[in-house]
């Protein structure tokens, strides 16, 4: 027996973490000024909204579903926030809870369609994606700039840690979401039901688990997360625009998959998703430091990584099946 025998469940995550460390090390060796805490914190600052969305998406994917509406939901949230603050002069203290409610309701409705009408998550959330994007232009086809003082303050506030290094308020929100998600996933009945549902819906039903409620709640959670990401994105951009976060749903799915969550459902960790997001961030940073490559190389790198990780998952699953049969 190997004393350091690793639980195979953690294998995909460890690959992701190792990859991140290797990339960070490579950057540090190659480029001056790369190896600093601030470079790392910037990854969080620039990707806080992606992280929040990806957390919601992780839950959806663990149940074996998918949510394509998140990018549009972010755009719609920025648009709705901007118009309510700028044109209708609502207080931000009312606007933010309101948009979160709208996002959650949106997710809840999609969840209900998926559960009670037995529709494919792919197609329902695809419809949700078009709908939310379209609603943006119903509000305005132009970008709406926010010059509300409160938004500006939140946007520019720097929270200093360890001397001159800082993070933004958005990062704090993202970290709270991550912490809450880890707790929900591992220490609440809802969280465990999510995993059970992803493992086998049929078995979950026969074990008497609340399958319907869990499924609807998962999409509600994803709707909530994407609208919260929209709020954070509003801080980041200080504007509402129908073209914000185009294609973000795919970045989110990529982050979750690179983070080791299996698209087939049942397996995955929120911690992995954090590193999935960080890896996407670090690819961008590396390309920025490199200086001559076009930013489209980010997509190429992410594309290659995705191929790699899906292959890795395939190997992981087939090996697991084999050992299960032999045991």
């Amino acid at each position: 027996m190997n004393v350091f025998k690793l639980d195979r469940r953690y294998f995909p995550i460890l690959v992701t973490v190792a990859l991140f460390i290797v990339m960070f090390a490579a950057g540090s060796i190659e480029y001056n000024g790369f190896f600093s805490l601030q470079v790392f914190l910037n990854l969080l600052i620039d990707n806080a909204f992606l992280l929040i969305t990806a957390v919601g998406m992780t839950f959806v994917i663990i149940t074996g579903g998918i949510d394509l509406s998140v990018g549009s939901m972010i755009a719609f949230t920025t648009m709705l926030s901007a118009t309510l603050v700028q044109n209708h002069h609502w207080s931000p203290w009312v606007v933010i809870p309101f948009v979160l409610l709208v996002g959650s309701f949106f997710g809840w409705s999609m969840g209900c369609l998926i559960q009670y009408f037995k529709l494919q998550p792919f197609i329902v959330t695809l419809a949700g994606m078009f709908l939310a994007r379209g609603l943006c232009y119903l509000i305005s086809i132009e970008s709406i700039t926010i010059d509300n003082e409160w938004y500006k303050t939140v946007s520019q506030t720097k929270v200093y840690l360890f001397g001159k290094n800082y993070i933004s308020i958005s990062v704090i929100i993202a970290l709270v979401v991550v912490a809450a998600a880890i707790y929900i996933a591992h220490f609440t009945k809802f969280g465990r039901n999510v995993y059970a549902l992803g493992g086998s819906e049929q078995s979950s039903l026969l074990m008497g688990l609340p399958v319907a409620r869990t499924k609807v709640l998962v999409y509600t959670l994803s709707g909530f997360c994407s609208s919260l990401a929209g709020v954070v994105f509003t801080f980041y951009m200080l504007s509402g625009y129908g073209l914000h976060a185009v294609g973000m749903e795919l970045d989110t799915i990529a982050a979750v998959v690179i983070g080791g969550t299996l698209l087939t459902g049942g397996t995955g960790y929120v911690v992995g998703t954090i590193f999935g997001v960080l890896i996407q961030g670090i690819i961008q940073t590396l390309i920025m430091f490199q200086g001559t490559l076009s930013s489209w190389w980010t997509k190429i790198a992410i594309g290659m990584l995705l191929f790699l990780f899906i292959l890795l998952q395939k190997v992981f699953i087939s090996r697991k099946k084999k050992s299960g049969a032999a045991a």
């Binding site: 465990r192 995993y195 059970a196 493992g199 086998s200 049929q202 078995s203 979950s204 074990m207 049942g266």
Partner: peptide, 14 residues
Amino acid sequence: NLCTNLTVSENIFI
């Protein structure tokens, strides 16, 4: 009819 992706204990108690 259990979930093979969960731990043994969870399958008993979920």
